[in-house]
Amino acid sequence: MKGLSLKVQAGELYGLVGPDGAGKTTAIRMLTGLVNPSAGEALVLGQSAQKGSRLREAIGYMPQQYSLYGDLSVHENLRFFGRLFGLSRREFGEREDRLLHITRLARFRDRRAEALSGGMYKKLALACALLHRPRVLVMDEPTNGVDPVSRRELWDLLYEFVSQGMAVLLATPYMDEASRCHKVGLLSEGRLLTEGSPSVLVASMGHRALFMEGPDRTALEQAIENRFGRESQGGARTLLAITPLGAGLRVLLAGDAVTSVVSWAEASPLVSTIRELGLDFEDVFLGLVAAPDASPDASSGVDSGSTPGAASSEDP
């Protein structure tokens, strides 16, 4: 982690995105006080997140891997964590009923956690993390191993809590998931490359994507690589990424290179179809990894205004 500083407003969903090994989990573990930074300090809500901090009463944490007692029932897991958070019997009863209701787990109250499906298990983990009504919810890859239907359900739940004023920070390697956040931060090798709202990031990139199709996809890919792979304009590479799409290729380009690529393609016997595609959030990430200097806002660490749910970690 190097001088990571990010701000999550109350009522905001912040996605920390990056490839495996980028430091997402480490950042999250520091903010929840599970590890102490080797130097510097991790602050949440203006308080130190050191081990054993009282801050824990205000944070809910949902780890990436299985973290509940498989041999205990849904109810027993909830009761155990309720006790650890010092809830009274009455408080616990009300919250359990409510959480089981909104997660639609009430029917499975007496089922063992290990017998739940992946999606139900995650919902139970979410319920356990929300029992003490935290102001900040931190989640590490919340929809890892969850089927699409349950995934949507989990997101609906998250939006509901966020709309009630909770600040949510989640880490994910999936771009489609990141694009559902209000704000995303791109993390690579412990540094924040850029952050902003997904749509603004996409618009500010200035990339364009083309779809090309031809009789021989492999030969076409090879030809594009040979022609544009080493080309650059003003320090930025022309060709950012090629990914297969249907029977053809999705070619991500620096914005001003499109004209030359299109005229090359129209002359090439390898290309039979060409059209422009809309950009999505994944392109931002692919573009950044290919040309990190070309980020729209390379200076990380935006700090301003009141910080109901600000998290920062500094490592000089």
Binding site: S67, L68, L84, F85
Partner: peptide, 15 residues
């Protein structure tokens, strides 16, 4: 091993 300790450690439980 099962990761449950992590979930316990983020609660305000006293050692």
């Amino acid at each position: 091993e099962t990761g449950t300790l992590e979930q316990v450690m983020v609660t305000p439980i006293r050692p």
